[in-house]
Design a protein around this nucleic acid. Structure first.
Length: 274
DNA sequence: AAGGCTATCAACCGCATTCGT
DNA sequence: CACGAATGCGGTTGATAGCCT
């Protein structure tokens, strides 16, 4: 006899979520929190299984979920993390505040895999794809130079396994940093990227999607603090997100690499934010 | 304009892991 | 420790939007 299904599927709805369902779920969670996913659909008045609700919340409805395209920096970091962690998407996602494992997995399968193949790298092993092993090292050198041009940034971070293998000391330092929970330069760059997005102008598309989000999540905005209650939903969102960013930065303010942050801020001041 | 093809991504499925008793 | 329930995770599928012929 096989394993019991996670939930009784009889009479339960499947497929894409409607705005009404999103509204119900988001309102319920924002007002009541999450105690037991199995009871959430019942209490929220949804004909969905708990598992489906959990997925919908984590991948789409969570207020802090970061949507939109991945930056070059993020892609490089995903490649680097994948070379070390493999297909452990949740672990990889944990390095990207607001990104979901599903989103990263999709991005990997649809974009990054192709990108690596074009560069002559096996997306699984991160090694050169080459029948003629004699040419392998040549490809390594070439792709390494292509992917890791000698830039200021590349002096501080290790993007590719070839680079890591070439410099064992750097690898050990990197792993040690990982163990003690310090943020890497690239992680901080990711936070800065978030901040840049928040401070920069929202595109019409982003604003539109946020408006839609707010329209179907009225109770969410109603439950926000009084200080932002009277402002435009987009402003509330920006304020909330900025606060989250500030909180996340505060948690790493003891970070040793503050010099790099200062450099990045200098860069942003002169090139991006202003 | 219509049909086929491709890329993207939300959602599902089933196994693994964690947690509570 | 054993067991069952709940949750997490990764592989895969299916819907659909956009592009091409």
């Amino acid at each position: 006899m096989g394993r019991q299904p996670c939930c009784d599927k009889v009479g339960l709805k499947r497929g894409p979520w409607t705005i009404e369902e999103d509204h119900k779920l988001a309102s319920f969670i924002m007002n009541n929190g999450i105690r037991c996913w199995k009871t959430v659909p019942k209490l929220a008045g949804l004909l969905r299984c708990g598992k489906s609700c959990r997925l919908r919340w984590i991948n789409y409805l969570r207020p802090d979920v970061k949507r939109g395209g991945f930056t070059e920096v993020e892609e490089d970091q995903i490649i680097e993390l994948h070379s070390r962690l493999g297909n452990r998407w949740s672990k990889i996602a944990s390095h990207f505040p607001g990104r979901t494992d599903n989103e990263i997995k999709n991005h990997w399968n649809t974009r990054i895999k192709k990108k690596l193949k074009l560069l002559g790298l096996d997306p699984v092993t991160h090694q050169p794809i080459q029948e003629d092993q004699n040419n392998a090292q040549e490809i390594v050198n070439k792709t390494d130079m292509d992917l890791n041009p000698i830039t200021e940034e590349s002096l501080y971070c290790d993007n590719k396994p070839t680079a890591l293998e070439a410099d064992q000391d750097k690898l050990e330092a990197f792993l040690m940093e990982e163990e003690i929970g310090l943020m890497t330069f690239q992680e901080t760059a990711g936070l800065l990227e978030n901040f840049e997005l928040l401070c920069g102008s929202f595109s019409e598309d982003q604003e539109g999607s946020w408006r839609n989000h707010q329209e179907m999540n009225t109770p969410v905005s109603q439950s926000s603090s009084a200080s932002v209650e009277d402002s435009h939903p987009l402003q509330q969102h920006q304020q909330n997100q900025q606060q989250q960013w500030v909180d996340s930065v505060e948690s790493v303010m003891s970070w040793d690499g503050l010099d790099y942050l200062e450099q990045e801020l200098f860069f942003l001041e002169n090139g991006h934010l202003l």
